[in-house]
Amino acid sequence: MISIDSSSSLQLAEMRPVAQTKSIASPRHAMSLFHPDPIAELLEKLYLPQWNAVEWTFPAHWGLSVPADVVSMYVFTQGSGWFVPDAPGSEPIRLMAGDHLITTRGTAHRMLHTLDCPAEPIAERISDPTWHIPNGPDSTAILYAQFSLRELKQNPLSIGLPEVIHLNHRADPVLRSCIPILDVLSTVKREAEHGWQLTVRKLAEIIFIKTLSVELTHGSNGANGNGDKHLMHAVTDATVGPVLKALVQSLGDPWTVPKMAKMANVSKSAFSERFRNLVGTPPLQYLTEIRMQNACELLRESPIEIANIATLVGYESPSSFSNAFKRWNGKSPAEYRRNAKQAIVG
Rank of each mutant, 00 (worst) to 15 (best):
A340V: 07
N265V: 09
H109I: 04
S267V: 09
T104Q: 07
A307E: 15
E120S: 05
H166Y: 07
V243F: 10
S90L: 05
N339Q: 14
N52V: 02
K268R: 14
K245R: 10
G195E: 05
N168P: 02
L212G: 05
M111L: 09
N221E: 01
A261D: 13
M111H: 05
F58Y: 00
L161S: 12
E120M: 02
P27I: 04
C117S: 06
N226L: 04
G81Y: 05
L115C: 05
V345N: 12
G346W: 04
T281C: 12
V279S: 08
L203E: 14
S80V: 00
P27K: 00
E120H: 00
V313G: 07
A19W: 03
E335L: 12
T236P: 07
V174T: 15
T114S: 11
H100T: 13
R170L: 10
L64S: 05
G314K: 06
V266H: 10
A145N: 07
I344R: 10
C296G: 09
H29T: 14
G330I: 04
T107A: 15
G195A: 08
P85L: 08
H218D: 00
G81C: 07
A310V: 07
V214T: 14
I309M: 04
L312P: 01
S139H: 02
F271N: 08
Y315E: 06
S127F: 00
S26I: 12
F83I: 08
R176K: 11
G63I: 04
R16H: 05
T281N: 13
E120Y: 06
S72V: 15
E120R: 05
V313M: 05
P318A: 06
P67C: 02
L33R: 14
H29D: 15
K245Q: 13
C178F: 14
I24D: 06
S317Q: 06
I39F: 10
P59E: 03
R291Q: 14
Q50N: 02
V54I: 11
R176W: 12
A246P: 08
A145K: 01
F271E: 03
E41G: 10
M263H: 07
S272M: 12
P59D: 01
S319N: 04
I290D: 08
P88K: 14
G89F: 11
S148Y: 03
W51E: 02
A30M: 11
L64Y: 06
P173H: 03
A234C: 12
V66M: 02
T239S: 09
S9A: 15
R276M: 10
E215R: 15
E120K: 07
G63S: 02
G98P: 00
N323F: 06
L244Y: 06
L212Y: 03
A60R: 04
T256W: 11
D228Q: 12
E91A: 08
R125K: 02
H61V: 00
E289W: 09
S90E: 13
V240R: 03
H230A: 13
A310R: 04
F76S: 03
A60M: 01
S8I: 10
Q293C: 09
P283L: 00
Q285H: 11
